[in-house]
């Protein structure tokens, strides 16, 4: 399969004005500014195939948005190579821009006072989409998102979820091959989140588009991404399958047991996370799981036993915390 995005040892440093707190320092900085170099992205490399949905994860300030902006041609890299569909994004060539799109959950591009349908016409003119193709695509997207007549209402009268759906239609009318989605489900209710997720999956399937998704909702990532890229402090921590992330970073497993005698104390076997009427959850080191399980089965009267990996968000959280301590 061909790669649509290639990133090679990408670096971005910002010059940040530095000043101390307080009035005196503020006045001083009017005349003489000290600058500090901040490395937002440090030597990141990865590639993304056509038709692939990749979750781009990292805590706030990890360099996710900076990287996305460089991929979309909004920021000039300090050094390193980016190739999107055979173009260098920072040159902002029309041939490339016609094939990509960017959707940001926190920012809107639809005009507030007019129906989304009128804003779509604007997109048609900017992207120079032929009339027939435009209509077909527009109606298809409206249908996929079950927007119906909502596109005829002024955008300001739409709910947050409806507005986001309209944003998606507007951003995909030109049938882009590469999608950059920055927190597209932020602030939406569970139903709207699910709808957006299903929509992204359907678009990806239908048009074999590459999708880079950042989200703080693990449900988004689990539903859409087979592969995740994790960055932290501007560095690439992990690039691979979602299951592998659990494998690599989960240091613990959870053993759930149902006791015949609810009063039994299991704290010698592992850390007790919860205990209600004989339903006990134990956290144990991953490499000791087999051994502890055997001991439990031999030494304690148990009616049921399960072994689970911890939830993905808690792993992610743990990874970020660990790294923060190291650095």
């Amino acid at each position: 399969m061909s790669q649509t995005i290639k990133v090679d040892t990408l670096i971005k440093t910002f010059q940040v004005p530095e000043r101390e707190a307080g009035l005196k320092a503020a006045v001083g900085s009017l005349f003489k500014r000290k600058y500090r170099e901040v490395e937002a992205v440090k030597k990141i490399s990865f590639g993304i195939d056509a038709g692939e949905i990749v979750g781009f994860l990292g805590p706030n300030g990890a360099g996710k948005t900076t990287t996305l902006k460089m991929l979309a041609g909004l920021l000039f890299p300090t050094s390193g190579q980016i190739d999107v569909l055979g173009y260098e994004p920072q040159r902002r060539e029309k041939e490339l821009l016609r094939q990509i799109t960017i959707v940001m959950g926190q920012r809107n591009q639809l005009m507030w006072d007019i129906p989304a349908l009128d804003s779509f016409e604007l997109q048609r003119a900017i992207y120079q989409i032929p009339e027939g193709e435009f209509r077909r695509m527009r109606d298809e997207l409206i249908d996929l998102l079950s927007m119906g007549d909502l596109v005829k209402k002024p955008v300001r009268n739409l709910s947050l979820g409806e507005r986001m759906k309209a944003e998606f239609i507007s951003a995909l009318l030109h049938r882009p091959k590469v999608l950059f989605l920055d927190e597209p489900t932020i602030g939406l209710d569970v139903t709207a989140q699910r709808l957006i997720r299903e929509f992204v999956a359907a678009y990806n399937q239908r048009y074999q588009a590459s999708v880079m998704l950042t989200s703080h909702y693990m449900a988004d990532v689990q539903a859409l991404c087979k592969r995740v890229i994790v960055i932290h402090h501007g560095q690439l921590l992990y690039d691979g399958g979602l299951a592998g992330l659990v494998e690599k970073f989960a240091a613990y497993k959870t053993i759930g047991v149902t006791l015949n005698d609810p009063d039994l104390d299991l704290s010698e076997y592992g850390e007790i996370i919860s205990n209600s009427k004989g339903q006990v959850n134990l956290r144990v080191p991953k490499n000791a799981t087999a051994q502890i399980t055997t001991r439990l089965l031999n030494e304690v009267a148990i009616s049921d036993l399960t072994i689970e990996d911890p939830a993905i968000d808690s792993i992610i959280e743990q990874v970020f915390q660990q790294e923060a301590q190291v650095v």
């Binding site: 979309a72 909004l74 591009q109 900017i126 992207y127």
Partner: peptide, 10 residues
């Protein structure tokens, strides 16, 4: 929000 204007093929 200038990002939107800058990512248009015009």
């Amino acid at each position: 929000t200038l990002d939107f204007a800058l990512t248009k093929p015009a």
